[in-house]
Amino acid sequence: MVLDDDQVLIKKILEGKKSSFEELMKKYNKKIFGFIFRMVRDEEIAIELTQDFFIKIFKILAKYNFEYKFSTWAYRICYNLVIDYVRKNQAYIDSLDDDSVSQKQMLKSENYVAEDGFDKLAKEELKEYIWEVVDTIPVKYRELILLRYLQGLKYDEIASITELPVGTVKNRIFKAKEILKTEIENDGMFK
């Protein structure tokens, strides 16, 4: 059986090599933290959940099945961790949603108001703006956008992580993009 880079690292970790775990953590830290932070939108909670994720991964690494991609297995654990938190703290997350909308509006009024819309915005600013909008859409759409674009996963991988049918995943991502488009239009961008 040919092992990919992640699986080689995992073998070494299971043999007791601490530095390989550090390497694995460095590789996934940015994507995992990014996903968690955009889901819970609270830095302290995101730090705590990211730490919990890596500790959990290390503790149950012996259960990992080498027939499957490590990233899919890891993202499923991360997804479950976050969704559990979101479900338990729905009211708190909703209050953050309200804050975030007003933050976005403030950001728009301060930095993004341009007479001719997006052409006047710097590319980086526009990218930041669009990802700000992503942070404000409902969780059930946001999670799929994050898995698809932040983690770069395919529809079938997302379906396996979220335990949703592939068709539902696809439809929700289409719907999410429609919501994003509407939000962006309402903000007067992309005209």
């Binding site: 940015k30 995992i32 933290f33 990014g34 730090i47 990218k127 669009i130 990802w131 674009y149 932040l150």
Partner: peptide, 13 residues
């Protein structure tokens, strides 16, 4: 939209 989504803004952990 697709172009901007495919180039995500990562937050430094």
């Amino acid at each position: 939209l697709e172009k901007y989504l495919e180039d995500p803004v990562y937050i430094k952990p």
